[in-house]
């Protein structure tokens, strides 16, 4: 903290509550405004999140890394580059003609499920989370006896791209694993979207979403448990989306997470 902060800034005596949340609590104040150090820390975090948006995913390397789980097919959306991708979400939702033809030629269904991995708005999310997540999820998936299409790796992809891919390969379920838009404190968060009977033209109401999957967010085990539950129910009830409620009870929290609530524990003061 700069020397000039001393004397006029007021600290908040609840900084210890930060262990419960990544939120920017107890920042202190000068008057009613942010102290200089906190203001400038924010500027730096914003600069970093901006760079996450523009970082490119190395699809070839990703395909190599994922080959341990079985065959991998690489495809691209109709958005040729990042600037186009950011301004034309419609192009990110469909395959390039070349990729659509390649997929139809190389992958022949039917399958119970196809897993698609796409950069979305954060390649960091895939780089950091996809291997440990699939290591947790795929054994659960295979144990249920679901036939699985080759893993599909997609560049410049949006969520709905999974529906077209699922339709082409002839899968009952598509699971889209995609980089969420980077947050100030979480530039590497993975999102998971599930669609039953995927086809182009579906909307968000037809999908179920599990978000914030990353080391400091929803754990891989919790996310895999929820996804497995939702997928099982989707197959049983032949639907996904708002009519398929996520009744899966959360797994017991791992150590460090709190069970109680300090605002409500103990006698009333």
């Amino acid at each position: 903290m700069a020397d000039s902060d001393k004397g006029v800034t007021i600290a908040n005596p609840w900084t210890h509550l930060r262990r419960h949340t990544p939120a920017r609590i107890a920042l202190g104040r000068t008057g009613v405004s942010l102290p200089t150090s906190e203001h400038l820390a924010f500027q730096l975090a914003h600069a970093r999140a901006r760079s996450a948006v523009h970082h490119a995913l190395d699809l070839t390397k990703l395909a190599q890394d994922l080959s341990r789980f079985g065959p991998v097919v690489e495809v691209h959306s109709a958005a040729p580059d990042r600037p186009t991708y950011l301004q034309r979400p419609d192009l990110g939702r469909r395959l390039s003609p070349v990729s659509a033809a390649k997929l139809a030629a190389e992958v022949k269904g039917p399958f119970d499920v196809t897993y698609v991995v796409a950069d979305g708005l954060s390649a960091y999310a895939i780089e950091k989370n996809i291997l440990p997540f699939l290591e947790t999820m795929l054994p659960l998936s295979d144990k249920s006896g679901w036939s699985r299409a080759p893993l599909i790796v997609a560049g410049q992809g949006r969520v709905a791209l999974g529906d077209e891919i699922g339709a082409i390969v002839g899968a009952k379920l598509v699971v889209m694993l995609i980089g969420e838009r980077p947050g100030l404190s979480s530039p590497d968060s993975l999102g998971i979207y599930l669609t039953y009977n995927p086809k182009p033209g579906l909307t968000d109401a037809d999908r179920n979403c599990i978000s914030n999957v990353r080391a400091d967010g929803l754990t891989y085990a919790q996310a895999a448990y929820k996804l497995h539950y939702l997928a099982t129910e989707a197959v049983r009830r032949k639907l996904s989306g708002v009519n398929l409620k996520d009744d899966a009870e959360a797994l017991p929290k791992s150590d460090g997470a709190s069970a109680g609530n300090f605002l409500l524990d103990g006698p009333k003061s």
Partner: peptide, 20 residues
């Protein structure tokens, strides 16, 4: 007071911060 995993103490921490 959003929290990435809906941790109750995490939510409570942001509520205290906001109320104060």
């Amino acid at each position: 007071p959003n929290h990435p995993t809906d941790d109750t103490a995490g939510i409570a921490a942001s509520i205290v911060d906001g109320l104060l």
